[in-house]
Nucleic acid binder design. Sequence first.
DNA 1: GTCTATATTCGGATAGAC
DNA 2: GTCTATCCGAATATAGAC
Lengths: 194, 194
Amino acid sequence: MQLLKAKKFDTRFEVLSATLKLFSEKGFFRTSMQDISAEASVSIGSIYHHFKNKEVIAKALYDMLLDSMTAQTQLCLDTEESFRASCKRLIRYFFEVAEQQPHALKFLLYARHQEFLPNHPAICQAKPFELLIVAAKEAIASGELRDVDPVIVVSSTFGGPMRLMLMKVDGVMDVPIEACFDASWECIWRGISR
Amino acid sequence: MQLLKAKKFDTRFEVLSATLKLFSEKGFFRTSMQDISAEASVSIGSIYHHFKNKEVIAKALYDMLLDSMTAQTQLCLDTEESFRASCKRLIRYFFEVAEQQPHALKFLLYARHQEFLPNHPAICQAKPFELLIVAAKEAIASGELRDVDPVIVVSSTFGGPMRLMLMKVDGVMDVPIEACFDASWECIWRGISR
DNA sequence: GTCTATATTCGGATAGAC
DNA sequence: GTCTATCCGAATATAGAC
């Protein structure tokens, strides 16, 4: 599933797509409107017709990607029966995104937003994180997990995989990230399971 | 131990100290030389006398903090006898820094460097990480840890605590981070130990 | 809706006195 | 070594034609 959705082949999409690539490569501040214009083959005037300013492009992009992540998280939690199964599936999904849409994941993970979207909540206050906290709480109540603070459960569960994903999107990992899944998951599950 | 060392009460130190605060609050690009000048109570001309440009300040800061981290990592690995004891001590140390010198940790963790120090190695290629990989390898050989890829061991060990540290420096954690230590460590150790 | 040309601001960096 | 005053380029954003 593509995180960045092409409703139709329109200017708006071209701009967002080009911007995502540039931001993840060079960052928000090193990317000029000129750059975006060139990469998207859309004039600066047109860009400003669709987006009030550069920050608005960033915000549109961020919201879109985060919404996809939230939807996917919700889906995994709703579809699977156990916390274990939900997390396994979700991490598998994240790994897939890291492999196939590294730009999107890098943009999202690198929490640069803090810098270019001032007074925006930190990523750890975002929706997916909160959904997982709730799910962890339930899994503790049901006895699936040991009785540990849910925040620590979620950090322990996703902290390791996130390090691996960062390595992947930074180009430091030469093997496919899927190769890390089993070993990584075993560490996680031994850590949090009852 | 202070990560930012005051050799003497000199201009250079004043600038670095002010810059650390501003960068961690507003980021590299939103901090102007004007801002630094005001915060440090040092004229712009003087700043440029000591540092060629803004990037050089950032790099000096980054190197200084990373060197401290490397030294501390080395110390823990040299002093303690087991991988387990080394990591416990190191994470305790990190937590302490998160609590007492959040600016320093935030600057270091937020890997914004990628953006303002182009073609600089990602944090996961930095010295402390490499030291830990080697140590993990040895601990596997000695039978202290299960036979898991050392990269995964290190990610699993520090991934969780790093999430917690980020929450702390982002002001999202209201309790002292030390309160998380025992539970977090138990998850880690169950995950990686033999 | 898209484009080109242009205005205006901002901030990094320098010159040169003390 | 420190300071003030100033330069100048870059990039955001706009105006207005098509």
